[in-house]
Structures are given as structure tokens and as C-alpha cells.
Amino acid sequence: MHIMEGFLPSPWWQIWFLISAPFVIYGLYQLKILVNERREALPLLAVAGAFVFVLSSLKLPSVTGSCSHPTGTGLGAILFGPFITSVLGLIVLIYQALFLAHGGLTTLGANVFSMGIAGPIVAWAIYRAGTKTGINTFVTVFLAAALADLFTYVVTSVQLALAFPAEAGGFMTSLVAFGTVFAITQVPLAIIEGLVIALVFKYIIAVRPDLLVRLNVLTEHAVERIREAAA
């Protein structure tokens, strides 16, 4: 999903910076509130950030014969919402752009949008909708994280197709070409990411259910039900 350094021409790289900036700025504002008012949740924030670090460093082989990596942003989005997660995504993307030449500084705006904003919004929306309808919590977490991962790569394909429409066929032809490279490779990885994050969610419920209640991620009633089912 990383658009490589210099691979977005003007005006696209500026446009994506402009679109991403408000999300990150609001994320920093929310982060400040979290640090001041919910200090007890900071370890969980560290874990969510660490998760993006670990998962986005693992390049996994997919069935299509190429490798790609999960994003790990679903957990942060479920726990802290998409704005704070965009800050976590930004940190990881800067690390990779500086030390690994993976992604880039000029394409940072576009990459933050796909990985740090678009994916997390999907995860957050699915999780919120799922908890309202009363579907099993772990199924909801799985769907939220897996579809966030997949959507990140769909957005990258759209970003590239917008910047590089095919001479014959234009935007749609390009979208199919990039979508084939990114989105299809990503399907198995998205499934694995969804499962891993569901598993971690289970462990968080096991050790600190009170934090999840305080962050409004789960109701006390839901925690009770899950603990009874596990006992």
C-alpha cells in the first residue's frame, strides 16, 4: 500500500497532504485530551501503536505470488477512533520512509490517508455498527480489522488510478490494474489481520475489561456476557 517516494506527481501529492492534515491535527488534539484526562489508557494506546509497528513490518506471501503487509490499524481505530489512529499511522509511515525507503516523504500525505485514515474509519464504523446490532463481539472485531486492511489497499489503488489514468480506458482501467496488484493480494492477509486483532482483543478483555468500558468500547453488560461465555 506504500506509494513509493516520488511516485505521485503534482498536484496529487499536495492534494493528499491537504486532505490528511485536518484528520491528523484533530487526532493530535484528541491525543492531548487522552493524555491529560485518561492517563490510565496510555498503555493501551502504546499497545495499539505497537501493533501497527509489528503488523506493518511483516511482509507476508499471498496466494497471488507476491508479498504485501497488513496494516494493524484496526485495533487503534476500535479502541481510540480513527483520528488518534491517523497519528499512529503517521509515526509508522515516517519511520518506514526515513529508515527503509519504504513509502516516502512526498507520498506521506497519500499513504497516511489510505492507512491511517480511510482504513481506520472503516474499522471504527463497522465496529460501532456491529456493537449496536448485537453481533458477536469477536466477529465484529474481525470484520472491522479485516475490511479496514482491505479498504486501505482499495484506497491506494484509487489514489494511483487518479494520478495515472490509463491512456486507453482512463481511470477505470487503471483502477482495475492497480486493484489487481493490491486488493486481491491483500484478501488473505486481511483475513489473517482480522483474526490476529480479534485474538488480541480477547486478551485485552481478559486483563483490562474496565479500560474498555471506560473508553466506551464495550458496555459493562457486553463484558459480563463475554466473560460468562469464556468461563
Partner: peptide, 24 residues
């Protein structure tokens, strides 16, 4: 085999004659 998807996308773009305008 098993190269990165990021690289494959870059190849598609370079085939159209595009040169990246900024290097890492």
C-alpha cells in the same frame, strides 16, 4: 517470485514512461 506488491505497482507506473520526481 514473491516480490512486493508495492514494487509491482511502481513497475506498472514506470511502464507508462513516468519517472519519479523525488528520490528517497
Amino acid at each position: 517470485a514473491w516480490g512486493g506488491a508495492d514494487g509491482s505497482a511502481a513497475e506498472i507506473i514506470e511502464e507508462s514512461g513516468y519517472e519519479p520526481w523525488f528520490d528517497p
